[in-house]
C-alpha cells in the first residue's frame, strides 16, 4: 500500500473543504495512505523569488521536518499553490549546503534537523505515476459519459520548469485522468492562463477580466464545466463568476469542479460527501441533466 505524508494547507480546512473531503474519499478507495502531518503550518502560499531571502523558506521547510519526523520520504499536497511553494522551497534550500545549514541553525529548537530527504508530490502525479490511469478505470462505477469538461491547470501546476508536473505548454495529465473517468475532455485554449491570482484582493478588475476570458473560452470551445486543483483559481472562477453573471445575466453559468470531486462521483461515492452545495455556481442542474446524481 502507498503511504504518504499529507499536507493539507489552510484553505482546504476552510473554503475548500470539499476538495479535501473528496480527495480523502478517493484515496481510501485507491488504497493510498494519506497521513496528515501531526502539526503543520501555513506554507506561505507563494514561493519567495528573492535569491537573498531565506526567511520565507522557513515555513515550508518546517513542514518538511515534520515529514522526516514521521519517518516518511514523500509528502503529497492537493492545493496547487502549496505544492508549488513547498516543492520550490525544498529545491532552493537543497541547492546550497550553506542555506540548509543556516535554516537549520535558525530553527534550533527543532529536535530534528532537516536532512533534505523529502520529495514533494502533487496528488495528480501520484495518480498518474503510482496508480496509473488504466488502473483507475477499473474503479469507475458510474462513468461520466456525456459530461463535457475542460481541464484547467493555471500556473502553479505547470510553471516554472522544475516545479511543473507536466509539459508546461502541452499539459494533459488532468485530461488523461478525466478521460479515464469516462468524461468527454475538451482541451481548451486558456487551460494554462493565469486567473489573476491574489489580485482578487488588490485589483479585482484584473481578476474579472481574466476569469471572464477563461470562462468565455470554456463555453466557446464547447465544454460545460471546468476542472481544477487550486483553491485560489476556484475562488476566482467560481465565486467571482457569480459577480460576473450578476453584471451580465445573459452569461451561461460554468460549474467549477475539483478533479477529486469528479473522481469520487465516478467511483460511486454518495453525492452528500462531495460538497456540491458549497459551490457558488451550482453544479446540480448539470449533473442531473447528465444523470450523474
Amino acid at each position: 500500500m502507498l503511504d504518504f505524508a499529507y499536507y493539507p494547507g489552510c484553505t482546504l480546512k476552510t473554503t475548500a473543504k470539499h476538495f479535501e473531503l473528496s480527495a480523502l474519499e478517493v484515496c481510501k478507495i485507491l488504497n493510498i495512505g494519506m497521513s496528515e502531518l501531526p502539526r503543520w503550518n501555513c506554507c506561505g502560499t507563494v514561493f519567495s523569488l528573492s535569491e537573498d531571502d531565506l526567511m520565507h523558506n522557513l515555513a515550508p521547510i518546517r513542514n518538511l521536518i515534520r515529514v522526516e519526523e514521521m519517518g516518511k520520504s514523500e509528502m503529497v499536497a492537493l492545493c496547487s499553490m502549496c505544492y508549488n511553494t513547498i516543492k520550490r522551497a525544498n529545491a532552493f534550500i537543497l541547492a546550497d549546503e550553506s542555506r540548509l545549514k543556516t535554516i537549520n541553525d535558525f530553527m534550533y529548537k527543532e529536535s530534528h534537523k532537516y536532512e533534505g530527504s523529502v520529495k514533494v508530490l502533487h496528488l495528480l502525479e501520484v495518480l498518474r505515476d503510482r496508480i496509473g490511469f488504466e488502473r483507475i478505470k477499473k474503479y469507475v462505477k458510474k462513468p461520466l459519459t456525456g459530461l463535457k469538461v475542460a481541464p484547467y491547470y493555471g500556473c502553479a501546476l505547470l510553471r516554472p520548469e522544475g516545479a511543473g508536473i507536466d509539459e508546461a505548454d502541452n499539459p494533459h495529465i488532468m485530461g488523461d485522468l478525466l478521460r479515464a473517468l469516462g468524461a468527454e475532455v475538451i482541451e481548451f485554449t486558456a487551460d494554462r492562463e493565469c486567473c489573476g491570482s491574489y489580485h482578487v484582493v488588490s485589483k479585482p478588475e484584473l481578476v474579472y477580466m481574466r476569469a471572464s476570458n477563461i470562462l468565455d473560452r470554456v463555453i466557446e470551445e464547447g465544454a460545460e464545466a471546468l476542472v481544477l486543483s487550486c483553491p485560489l483559481c476556484d475562488f476566482n472562477l467560481d465565486d467571482k463568476q457569480k459577480d460576473i453573471i450578476e453584471k451580465d445575466t445573459s452569461r451561461k453559468p460554468v460549474p467549477i469542479f475539483y478533479f477529486t470531486q469528479l473522481m469520487a462521483l465516478a467511483f460511486g461515492i454518495e453525492k452528500e460527501k462531495l460538497g456540491f452545495e458549497n459551490h457558488a455556481i451550482s453544479p446540480t442542474p448539470l449533473l442531473k441533466e447528465k444523470n450523474l446524481i
Binding site: C10, T11, T14, G44, M81, V200, V201, S202, L232, F235
Partner: peptide
C-alpha cells in the same frame, strides 16, 4: 495603494489574503 476595508476583507479565503499580503 489599494485599501481593502472590513466588508471586503471578510469575503476572501485565506489563500487569497496570505498571498496578496505576502506579495504586496
Amino acid at each position: 495603494i489599494n485599501i481593502i476595508d472590513g466588508k471586503r476583507r471578510a469575503e476572501f479565503p485565506t489563500i487569497a489574503l496570505v498571498s496578496a499580503t505576502r506579495k504586496l
